[in-house]
Computed example of a mutant assay.
Amino acid sequence: MDGMTDDSVTARSEAAPQDVATSLTTGTLARRLGVSPTTLRSWDHRYGIGPAIRPDGRHRRWAPHDVAVLETMCRLTSAGVPPAEAARAARETAAGASGEDREPAGAPEPAPGAASRAAGPLPLGDVRRECRGLARAAVRLDAPAVEQQLATAVDAHGLVVAWQEVMLPTLHAVGRKWASSGDRYVEVEHLLSWHVSTTLRRFAGPAARCGGASAPGPVVLACMPGEQHTLALEALHAGLSQRGLPTRMFGSAVPAEALTAAVDRLGPAAVVLWAQARSTASLALARRVARTRWGVKGARRSPLVVPCGPGWLGRSDPGMTWPPSLKDALDTLEALYTEGR
């Protein structure tokens, strides 16, 4: 049953009594590992990662050896290893630790390219291996693994590459899966977004102070009125902080009057206006911000308005720079502080 032969079931049923006493039910083990019971059954059926104890031939009981194999399986898939490869490595690791081949007799060979249906593979496409590990951890709601994957990506590749090639593709994949599945993946999107935001703040440098009276003011970062998506703006804030540039982060859905009042008070070198959707990209407000003036007569200045996000595509004025990537935005803004040095 579940893809195992009668010989396999018999072999598994001959487990030691002490293993029965310390074994776990499928539900208990699923909660411990942060996966669904369906995922465990699927791994058993597809890859032979199944329980050694089935006292009555029907109910699974997972012995300590089985738990160790599954813990290795989860760790490897979280690191981006394909499930079939992870299953083989997990069995080999367990066999090496015990000094014997514990792979159950009659276990089916994994189908080429097969993935756990229970894990709900995300539409990632051609991406870095880290994206696949991050996506699997997010779908399992494995918060520690998500946090570790994100930190490792930033450590290994730097903030810009980690954002553009690991975080962003995974976030987009989760968003597409959510959009095509009703509300089934909303918890995955929320968990992943929370940990991405936490990681970006953790890796941001300390807040930088502005220079003297003649130095450029800070970079104001604000979402347009009605715009709730902040993660890309948080990535830009983290990148500016790492470069030691002064910022003022206002976050989501900044009312127009509050935004213009802040610009009047701060005299910023630049104002970044984020719009995820065309419906929130108000060119009238961007022009209003661009007309702001401050300073003494004869030496008045105005901010560089930098519209960011897909909502602005093809909608900004010629004098406004629309950077297509995080690196482009960082380079554009840093130039305001390095020109003339």
Rank of each mutant, 00 (worst) to 15 (best):
T260C: 12
A179K: 10
R129Q: 14
A232L: 07
A84C: 07
M320C: 06
R128D: 15
M224F: 04
Q242W: 00
A299L: 10
D126E: 12
L40S: 10
E130T: 04
S316R: 15
T199R: 07
S282Y: 08
A235L: 05
A137D: 05
L33K: 01
W43S: 06
Y47M: 01
V306Y: 08
A290S: 13
I53W: 15
H229K: 03
S36K: 09
L245K: 04
G244Q: 03
P55S: 08
G314Y: 14
C74W: 01
A151W: 01
E100T: 14
R287T: 09
A256P: 05
A256C: 02
P169K: 05
L141A: 07
L134D: 07
A253N: 14
R41I: 00
G251I: 08
L221R: 04
D101S: 08
C223S: 07
S193F: 04
E14I: 11
L333D: 03
T292R: 15
L233A: 07
A68W: 01
S316A: 14
R136K: 11
R32Q: 15
E103Q: 13
D155N: 13
P268C: 08
A151D: 13
A119M: 13
S279D: 12
L29N: 03
A135M: 06
L283D: 09
A207K: 12
L76A: 01
L150S: 04
D7H: 15
A208R: 01
E334M: 00
P55T: 09
G311E: 00
S98D: 15
D2N: 13
R12G: 15
T93K: 13
R140Q: 15
D328M: 00
G205C: 06
R288P: 03
V271E: 01
W194G: 12
G309Q: 04
R12K: 12
W274T: 00
G314F: 12
R88S: 09
D6Q: 15
V35L: 02
P108D: 11
A290K: 06
S241Y: 02
R102I: 12
W322P: 03
W312M: 07
R287Q: 15
E71L: 10
P17N: 11
G267E: 01
A16I: 09
G309N: 00
A68F: 00
R132A: 06
P303A: 05
P225G: 05
L221A: 02
G244D: 04
L283M: 11
K177P: 00
S282L: 06
H229S: 08
A335W: 03
L76C: 05
G106T: 09
S180H: 11
H59Q: 13
M249Q: 06
A137K: 02
V81C: 07
A114V: 10
V174L: 08
W322T: 11
R184I: 00
Y337M: 02
C308T: 08
R287V: 08
T292A: 14
V81Q: 02
L259N: 09
V305F: 05
H59F: 08
R32C: 00
T10P: 11
C308A: 14
A262M: 11
A97Y: 10
G182S: 03
A204H: 05
G106V: 06
A213H: 14
T22P: 05
Q242F: 03
R202L: 02
H190M: 08
S116P: 03
F250Y: 13
P218F: 03
C210Q: 13
R128Q: 12
W62Y: 15
L29S: 06
E130R: 09
W274A: 13
E227F: 07
L245T: 02
C223M: 05
R301C: 02
P310W: 06
P206C: 06
